[in-house]
Simulated assay, not measured.
Amino acid sequence: MSKVVLYYFDGRGHMESIRWLLAVAGVEFDEVLLKTREQFEKLLNDGSLMFQQVPMVEMDGMKLVQSKAILNYIAEKYNLHGKDLKEKVMIDMYAEGTRDLMDMIKIRPFLPPDEKKTKLELIQTKALERYFPVYEKALSVSQYLVGNQLSCADVHLLEATLMVEEKFPSILFTFPNLQAFQARMKTIPAISKFLQPGSKRKPQPDDGYVKTVKEVLRF
Rank of each mutant, 00 (worst) to 15 (best):
H81T: 00
G82A: 07
G82V: 03
G82K: 03
D84S: 04
L85M: 06
L85P: 00
E87R: 04
E87A: 05
K88R: 15
K88Q: 15
K88L: 10
K88Y: 10
K88W: 10
V89S: 09
M90C: 13
M90S: 14
M90D: 13
I91E: 03
D92L: 14
M93P: 08
G97C: 13
G97R: 10
G97A: 13
T98Q: 15
T98C: 15
R99N: 14
R99P: 01
D100K: 05
D100R: 06
D100Y: 06
L101Y: 01
L101A: 03
M102Y: 09
M102E: 12
D103I: 07
M104Q: 07
I105P: 02
I105H: 00
I105T: 00
I105G: 01
K106S: 12
K106H: 11
I107N: 00
R108D: 02
R108F: 02
R108E: 02
P109S: 00
F110N: 01
F110K: 00
L111F: 01
P112S: 04
P113W: 02
P113F: 03
P113V: 04
D114P: 04
D114V: 09
D114Y: 09
D114S: 12
E115V: 00
K116M: 03
K116D: 02
K117A: 14
T118G: 10
T118E: 12
K119G: 05
K119S: 14
K119C: 11
E121D: 04
L122D: 05
L122R: 06
Q124D: 07
Q124A: 10
Q124R: 14
T125W: 00
K126M: 04
K126N: 02
A127W: 04
L128V: 02
L128C: 05
R130E: 09
R130M: 08
F132Q: 03
P133E: 03
V134Y: 01
V134P: 01
K137G: 03
K137T: 12
K137A: 08
K137V: 04
K137L: 08
A138H: 11
L139N: 09
L139H: 11
L139I: 14
S140C: 13
S140F: 09
V141W: 05
V141R: 11
S142M: 09
S142C: 11
S142I: 10
Q143F: 06
Q143Y: 12
Y144T: 14
Y144W: 15
Y144S: 13
L145H: 07
V146K: 09
V146I: 13
G147E: 09
N148W: 07
N148H: 13
Q149D: 15
S151D: 03
S151P: 03
C152E: 08
A153F: 11
A153P: 11
D154Y: 09
D154R: 09
V155Q: 07
V155A: 09
V155S: 06
H156R: 12
L157T: 09
L157S: 08
L158W: 02
L158C: 05
E159T: 09
L162F: 08
L162A: 06
M163D: 07
M163L: 15
V164Q: 05
V164S: 06
V164C: 08
E165K: 15
K167A: 07
F168Y: 13
F168V: 06
